[in-house]
Design a protein around this nucleic acid. Structure first.
Length: 658
RNA sequence: GCCGGCGUGGCUCAAUCGGUAGAGCAGCUGAUUUGUAAUCAGCAGGUUGCGGGUUCAAUUCCUGUCGCCGGCUCCA
């Protein structure tokens, strides 16, 4: 039989498998690097007879997938997960297997066992995996009618596999055997265990069966695999680097903020340096909103329970809310209950309702840096990225249905400009109507169209999350990537049909008739706490100059330069910059080190030479030394550095602090 | 909330088999006047998260609780 590979024709025996073809085609080449192959664009299963692969395509281009391609890595990791399961089953025969997919940076497999697995088991499991790899066992695919497969797993006592088969729609299912271990699996896999790359088990965790907290907790083992040792090492190195730039660690080192767990778990104590960063960010953001036609408002922290009952929060969100109970003078009466706000929308609606609005007044755009409290479950707290008290850069836009799309375009522009300002990578998703929802089809359709139309006109790539919207309306979510590759939701733009209804918001149209406006909830940074946490990781603590709490520090060599250092400090401060002078009687190397550790952008050394020239020696936090500069030159450098990120578009830099 | 791990000076970490807590950095005091990532010396600092239990004796073992870390679920 003749097969075309890489444009060349090869003769292979009848009944050969894909991997045989590949071996023939690539004899002499580095077969070890090949995990699988692709047939006419689809990954081919190397353990399947070639005929089956070719059944649908007469003329077949067989194209290798290398183990370091994204597709190849996925196959490699999935196969490694199988081998891990095989190793676990051989060491712990009582363990039952659940699922074991490849994931973004590796793979996992979930097991059910009499005790959870721990990292102490890793040595034995990895050793067994290496044995299985050394034996170069083939992965053998076998297709069975589902009944037969079901009987097989019943015989094996694999209850989770039985449950999986029960949910499969297919009449025939595929099994993969690797040594004694047979798993329900769609494939594809590497042909033989000898083709596994470099792998390492990383951690264990509890995970619910099928991700549902009502189900049993399984024991999950995470691992990773790469084409070769070097790629694995690079990855482990990247993990270390990510740990190094953990915002919790850097926040402590730079004295930006702290937590006092004994006093207020999940709530931030902002120290002076961190509070300065926050203040600068807040002021910048308020100005940007005013510039874009928002109005600043602020509502109270507590609202009476009746308000939360009317909004529906009391029914739907109570377990996440904090309440206060004020004892009445008359002891027999129920205490008066206030809810501490978990959201800012109610106040904004009350402000809107303060008087009758005309269509000429719309849109109303209310902006508030609103402090909200949400009692998050204890296990989910995570530094600044997940807290119980946080500040939303929240706005509510109340507009006519006709204005909706235009308003959302404005909001997406704000999202885009902010992401550009910080050079963030982000993902946009539109979430559509969920099963459990309220409102008319017409409302949903119009709002969804407005959202999609707006981000298309803004030129943003996006995905659709079918059925993932809020019950009260569709939404746009924007997720940032942190240094560990984890995604954090920051911006969110949500249409709401419910609250205007519940709170009877109206405007008077051109015909004098009362109409229902649409409300858009939106937050761009999401929460200042989370956003600053992501910023710290993004920049590894070396914040952009305009945002760094200390922009320049003067270091004297000896006491003799004190007067000039103070003079220079005044001059730079008068230029609008945040400057410190380190006059301590310490060696220069020591002061430089401290300034470097604090990630101060401009380290300005003053010795006798500089005093004489009435300048400073400029060292950047990168370590680069710019040599002797006059004070006006330094001011110019600082100014240019502050303005640089704003040149990318949209945003304006026009403020100073000291 | 669930599964697992961990709580020792402000921070980072030690303390054999259970024998009564030790270092570096930071801090304070003094000396030193120094040229681009750590000058030297001295001093001070702890009810080992908190409660209960076992023991002659608990940082160490058991238990409860609070918190943190890694995940799961949820989420800005």
């Amino acid at each position: 039989m003749a097969v075309l590979v890489d444009g060349k024709e090869y003769n292979v025996p009848q009944g050969a498998s894909c991997s045989d073809v590949l071996k023939t085609a690539l004899s002499g080449k580095k077969f070890k690097a090949l995990a699988a192959c692709r047939l006419n664009g689809r990954p081919a299963d190397l353990s399947t007879p070639l005929d089956a692969c070719l059944a649908s395509d007469a003329a077949c281009g067989l194209e290798p997938i290398t183990a370091d391609s994204p597709e190849g890595l996925e196959i490699l990791r999935h196969s490694t997960a199988h081998v891990m399961a095989a190793a676990v089953k051989s060491l712990f025969p009582e363990a039952r297997v659940a699922i074991g997919p490849s994931i973004e940076n590796g793979f996992y497999y979930d097991f059910s066992y009499s005790r959870p697995f721990s990292t102490e088991d890793f040595e034995a499991i990895e050793a067994r995996m290496r044995e299985l790899a050394a034996r170069d066992l083939p992965f053998v695919r076998n297709e069975l009618p589902r009944d037969e497969a079901l009987r097989f797993f019943i015989g094996q006592g694999e209850s989770y596999k039985q449950a999986l088969i029960a949910d499969l729609p297919d009449e025939r299912v595929s099994l993969y055997a690797c040594g004694d271990f047979v798993d329900l699996c769609r494939g594809p896999h590497v042909p033989r265990t000898g083709l596994l790359g470099a792998f390492k088990l990383l951690s264990t965790a509890g995970a619910y069966w099928r991700g549902d907290e009502k189900n049993a907790m399984l024991s999950r083992i995470y691992g990773t695999a790469f084409a070769d040792e070097k790629a694995l090492k690079d990855y482990l190195h990247r993990l270390e680097e990510a740990k190094r730039r953990d915002h919790r660690k850097i926040g402590k080192e730079l004295d930006f903020f702290a937590f006092h767990e004994e006093a207020a778990p999940g709530m931030v104590f902002w120290h002076p340096k961190g509070m300065l960063v926050r203040t600068i960010l807040e002021d910048f953001w308020r100005r940007e909103h005013l510039r874009r036609g928002y109005e600043l408002v602020q509502g109270p922290q507590l609202l009476r329970r009746e308000l939360w009952e009317r909004s529906g929060h009391y029914d739907n969100y109570r377990e996440n809310m904090y309440f206060t109970a004020i004892k009445q003078d008359d002891e027999s009466r129920e205490p008066e209950i206030h809810g501490i706000k978990p959201m800012n929308c109610l106040s904004h609606m009350l402000i809107y309702r303060g008087r009758l609005r005309s269509y000429r007044d719309l849109p109303q755009r209310y902006f508030e840096l609103g402090v909200v409290h949400r009692h998050e479950k204890s296990g989910v707290l995570h530094g600044l990225l997940r807290v119980r008290q946080f500040t939303q850069d929240d706005a509510h836009i109340i507009c006519t249905p006709d204005q909706l799309e235009e308003e959302i375009i404005g909001v997406s522009a704000l999202v885009r400009d902010l992401m550009h300002l910080f050079d963030f990578s982000y993902k946009v998703a539109v979430s559509t109507r969920p099963e459990k929802s309220i409102g008319s089809d017409e409302d949903w359709e119009r709002a969804t169209k407005a959202l999609v139309g707006a981000i298309e006109r803004a030129g943003m790539p996006y995905t659709i999350n079918e059925g993932d919207g809020a019950f009260y309306g569709p939404k746009i979510d924007v997720r940032l990537l942190d240094s560990l590759g984890r995604e954090w939701q920051c911006s969110t733009i949500q249409c709401d049909f419910t609250l205007p209804e519940r709170f009877d918001l109206v405007y008077v149209d051109a015909n004098g008739e009362r109409r229902r406006p649409v409300m858009v909830h939106r937050a761009i940074m999401g929460s200042l706490e989370r956003f600053i946490g992501v910023l710290i990781e993004h920049y590894a603590g070396a914040l952009p100059v305009w945002l760094n709490p200390v922009q320049a520090r003067l270091l004297t060599v000896t006491d003799a330069q004190h007067p000039f250092a103070l003079e220079a400090k005044e001059a730079l401060a008068a230029g609008g910059f945040r400057v410190e002078a380190d006059l301590r009687n310490e060696k220069l190397g020591f002061k430089v080190r401290e300034a470097q550790v604090e990630k101060i952008p401009y380290i300005l050394v003053v010795g006798d030479k500089e005093v004489e020239a009435r300048g400073v020696n400029v060292r950047l936090r990168s370590g680069e030394n710019l040599g002797l500069k006059s004070l006006p030159d330094v001011i110019e450098l600082l100014r240019a550095d502050c303005q640089k990120p704003f040149k990318r578009g949209g945003m304006r830099y026009n403020f100073s602090y000291y």
